[in-house]
């Protein structure tokens, strides 16, 4: 199967990536090359095989529900693009 420019734009929108029209064409071609390459996986019979999500089969470790991290808000906000009053600033989302 092959992605058309409309599908490439839809995926880019899902990924929150703005693509220029030139990029949509060029990257679209490359994506189709990669998808053709991974297509060979479809031919493999995997009936009854358990998917392997992780390299090592271990049970998820849980920790006690206690605060362990110190408050380092100032250090973290010092590297933010825009802050104010201890908050991260973004364009208005609620009118």
């Amino acid at each position: 199967m092959s992605l058309n420019p409309e599908e490439v734009r839809r995926i880019a929108q899902l990924a929150r990536l703005e693509l220029s029209p030139q990029e949509t064409g060029r990257i679209g071609d490359q994506l189709n090359g990669i998808l053709t390459f991974v297509e060979q996986l479809q031919a493999v019979d995997t009936a009854g095989v358990t998917p392997m999500a992780h390299a090592i089969d271990v049970v998820q470790r849980l920790r006690t529900d206690v605060a362990t991290e110190p408050d380092r808000r100032d250090a973290f906000q010092a590297i933010a693009p825009e802050t104010g009053g201890g908050l991260y600033l973004v364009p208005k989302v609620i009118e």
């Binding site: 899902l14 990924a15 693509l19 990257i27 994506l31 991974v38 493999v44 995997t46 358990t50 999500a53």
Partner: peptide
Amino acid sequence: VKRRILIGTYVLSHGYYDAYYLQAQKIRRL
């Protein structure tokens, strides 16, 4: 990086997850 983000977004998107991602995880087991 953009290419890989887009491929990843696609293979995880609705309707393609089983065909790509789950199948790849089964092959990983093999």
